[in-house]
Design a binder for these strands. Sequence first.
DNA 1: TTAATTTCTGATTAGAAAGTCAGAAATACT
DNA 2: AGTATTTCTGACTTTCTAATCAGAAATTAA
Lengths: 216, 216
Amino acid sequence: MAKALAQAPARKGPQTAIRIREAALELFSRLGFERATMAEIAAEAGVSQATLHYHFEDKFQLWRAAMLQLRAVIGEEERLLEAAMDSPPEVQLRMAMRLFLQISWRHPALGRIVALEGMAGGERLEWLDAHLIGPRNRRLAELAKAAIDSGALKPFPAEMLITTLQSAAAGVINLAPMMKTSFDIDVTQAPARAAHEQMILDALLGGLLTDPSATT
Amino acid sequence: MAKALAQAPARKGPQTAIRIREAALELFSRLGFERATMAEIAAEAGVSQATLHYHFEDKFQLWRAAMLQLRAVIGEEERLLEAAMDSPPEVQLRMAMRLFLQISWRHPALGRIVALEGMAGGERLEWLDAHLIGPRNRRLAELAKAAIDSGALKPFPAEMLITTLQSAAAGVINLAPMMKTSFDIDVTQAPARAAHEQMILDALLGGLLTDPSATT
DNA sequence: TTAATTTCTGATTAGAAAGTCAGAAATACT
DNA sequence: AGTATTTCTGACTTTCTAATCAGAAATTAA
């Protein structure tokens, strides 16, 4: 079932499991768990359906494996934030927002997954909370509380604030298909992305901070 | 199949079809089209699965029927907005946001549906755009453009702005299960809802308007 | 009451999707 | 070379779900 010894893989290169995870991540995040079928994922990865079951026990485990790929992404975010741990909380918060935007554009699957499972609740949300989003959510909430305590941020409930900021930042990215359908706008183009980043940082933090000029 | 003559209904009262639509709306909006099964909807409505097919041709038509219930909601929003058509655009926009918040709390299904189908794209998004969300989206974008032209709003791309405002406002509402899981907060309680409304209006429009003190 | 109509259900069917398995194909080891 | 191991696949089974249908139950109309 799994590789017992260190050995170069056969047949289709060492990338098979990786390609499967990537295909799974894309389809799971865009369509949700049940709408994404094993057959589709297999086709997208260019392997047979049985190969999926060779590498991954079942659909749920494939889903978890795909999600764990996002941990590297989260990890990167965390590392960059930790480097700025000595800065005032509102500066850290602004940096977190900027990071979140960049990462969301590069890995739109994360935001879509959170939106999908965060709405539905259930087993997969529990898993996501434990392994991916929970620690980050609570860390960011603490950051917001600190910024509020220091008087830099308006005193809104920190948890709602964090969720709202993330929803606002991910909105246009997640809803790219709707932007195309309703407005005939392709937001994935570079100029649109730049305008979006500008807008989110300017509009949201410009409105939330008690003294917007404090941070760049 | 359908009622041919005006006649009082039999058995389970005239409410059967309505109850089915309500159950369908709740499940479709929370879980998405495929994850919501006909059996679940039937159970939730307290009827047999076959009854669903008596009242509605197939699953997609049941989905559309459930969505059309939301048109009354949208209609209410539109009517109240039209009453203020002579106000300056930024006042209308603020009123639209306030309305959106109230309606989203009362009918959380709308925001969830938009989030679900707006991410996935496809046939149902096309239908939603044509029958529910497209006209409203485009009207709000025009409103934002007018507010920008008048100098009341910062010059961001109007379509992104509208989508972001709606995403921000609906975020906490849609992600209520995640708020519970990650923060153990039940945002459906009245005090939380009031704080949320306050936060959205203050934070978002306070940041976006060039002169925040202009509107109440 | 009787007949007609509408509403509803249990039983069944057809099809899709996840998951299994024996064995083929490729590679690594000796 | 030959053997062992890993990787992969086609064919199959099982489970789940939408959809069908004949007829029961309730109601109305006569």
